[in-house]
Amino acid sequence: MAAGGDHGSPDSYRSPLASRYASPEMCFVFSDRYKFRTWRQLWLWLAEAEQTLGLPITDEQIQEMKSNLENIDFKMAAEEEKRLRHDVMAHVHTFGHCCPKAAGIIHLGATSCYVGDNTDLIILRNALDLLLPKLARVISRLADFAKERASLPTLGFTHFQPAQLTTVGKRCCLWIQDLCMDLQNLKRVRDDLRFRGVKGTTGTQASFLQLFEGDDHKVEQLDKMVTEKAGFKRAFIITGQTYTRKVDIEVLSVLASLGASVHKICTDIRLLANLKEMEEPFEKQQIGSSAMPYKRNPMRSERCCSLARHLMTLVMDPLQTASVQWFERTLDDSANRRICLAEAFLTADTILNTLQNISEGLVVYPKVIERRIRQELPFMATENIIMAMVKAGGSRQDCHEKIRVLSQQAASVVKQEGGDNDLIERIQVDAYFSPIHSQLDHLLDPSSFTGRASQQVQRFLEEEVYPLLKPYESVMKVKAELCL
């Protein structure tokens, strides 16, 4: 049975990233139509530049190519590739079939990587351009969430054990800070992308030097003109047959890092959902379990974690691919890159769409948070109580021993009897502590235990987050809708 299948058929496997999760716009960027249309555009740009620099290419040939950029006979191309065992030459023939007058000058002087690699770089750039505003929107939604809850005390956790208090907004800023680093890295790697350009079979530009009869300047002009037509500021000066596969490492490393950030955020949300302090959106008709109707599973956060793990592992592909590119190139890269580049971007696209949807509907339960604080705060307040007693004339050592005994009794009630923490009640009825009984409410005010959390939130948002989001103001209103 021949390899390949009808990918629109229910009898043929289709990647869930495309069929179930990723956005239509990201799927289109990695589609065959987008790819092969870009090949034709690159052939047109090459012909236009070659004509401008004096090669015998007519206006009629150029116009014929322009008129057929979208006229792609995919069936013919597939048949040609089956016959020739070469995808680029299959599309040269297919393009030439609908451009008979231009057929002889299509791909003039070029090698397969002229269309293959340059198209990949265009796709990487455009895919990054799709991700950047999506990530900015996630940051914006979380920034709104953090600002609104900047002063809401909550129990902090280290080692997932109760620690000092923080605020809900401050905790959210930990998430935002990681995503801001990801946004900066995505922008950097996007701006650092260079075009492969017009380089020939081993990167020496020998074929173009021959076409222009040894004119170095025209060869350099050709490279520059096509690079500018493709919208790049610069091209690699040095290439082998391909652009260095280190570029793929750079791009997928940034995406993998984004995956790590999203995994951490969504894990926190899942843990908070278990504590009943916070939940992701839950639709009115949504079913959490087929057997347990009360369940409210954090399905979206779980999906993000599941896909983020996949995204983090994909960076190993370009690392290994770059390491086995012998001399000017081997074909070890080809099949692998067809999979890992598309999957990385479709996965990143999915987790950003999902995280935006989550961040637009996060639900906080202040009463649950308050109750958990009441359970733990008495123990945390013991040092403040000791200091207040010393100020009232008591002995630190005597007070410490009193607190120690009462704390152990209260802990026994919590752990052995399943009761509430009654340390404060014990202190309130103990005559030894009568000098500070009137101060206990103040000493137990949760806001006095959150330090500068709310001020940190305000400063972080104003100095770091809002300036970073400013270039994306025009796209901030787009909502994230999930079908599944």
Results as ranks from 00 to 15, higher is better:
A453V: 07
K224A: 14
R83Y: 14
A291T: 03
L423N: 04
E148D: 13
G214A: 07
A344T: 06
I373Q: 01
A411V: 09
I287F: 01
L152N: 10
A78K: 10
I351S: 06
Q184D: 14
S474E: 15
H400G: 03
S395F: 07
A2K: 15
A291M: 02
M380L: 09
T154K: 02
A335W: 02
Y34F: 11
T167P: 00
W43S: 03
V189M: 13
N68K: 10
L108H: 08
F282R: 09
L468R: 08
G394L: 08
A49S: 13
V478I: 10
L183Q: 09
L272V: 12
L222F: 07
A103E: 09
D349R: 04
S23Q: 08
L484I: 10
V390C: 11
L142W: 12
R459N: 15
G104Q: 13
L152A: 06
L55I: 14
G4D: 15
M312C: 10
V413E: 13
H310I: 12
L130R: 09
S334M: 05
W39P: 00
K75F: 10
H93S: 15
R245W: 01
L271I: 14
E376L: 03
V414L: 07
M76E: 12
I385P: 04
L314E: 06
V478T: 14
V29E: 00
Q285I: 14
Q409T: 09
T166R: 00
L42A: 04
G116T: 15
L423K: 03
A256G: 12
M316W: 14
S438G: 09
R338M: 03
S448N: 15
D117Q: 00
R188V: 05
Q241F: 00
P24V: 12
I105H: 13
A206K: 04
V475L: 15
T242Q: 06
R20G: 00
F449W: 06
M89S: 07
Q221S: 11
G96C: 06
N68Q: 14
T52R: 12
R196S: 13
Q184K: 11
A322K: 05
L131H: 11
S407D: 00
T330G: 11
P467K: 08
D215T: 08
S323Y: 04
N297K: 00
E383C: 05
K295A: 02
E148G: 11
P435Q: 11
S448K: 15
F345P: 03
T154D: 08
L271E: 01
N336D: 07
V262N: 05
V364H: 05
I424E: 13
R404T: 06
D268K: 01
R338G: 03
R303A: 02
I351H: 05
K295E: 05
F195P: 05
N357C: 14
F36S: 14
A344G: 15
S31V: 04
K224G: 10
L275Q: 04
M299Y: 09
R37D: 08
K35E: 07
C305V: 06
R329W: 01
A291K: 00
Q320H: 09
S434R: 13
P298Y: 01
Y34A: 13
Q51L: 09
T382S: 13
F236G: 02
A453S: 14
S306I: 01
P366S: 06
S447L: 15
G109D: 01
D192I: 08
K66S: 10
K415M: 09
L440S: 06
K147V: 10
E250Q: 09
E425C: 09
E250L: 11
L482V: 13
Q51P: 00
A2L: 14
T347W: 04
L272S: 10
Q458W: 13
V88T: 10
E50I: 05
E50S: 10
V324L: 11
F345W: 03
A388G: 09
S359E: 07
C173D: 05
L352I: 14
P471E: 15
L209N: 08
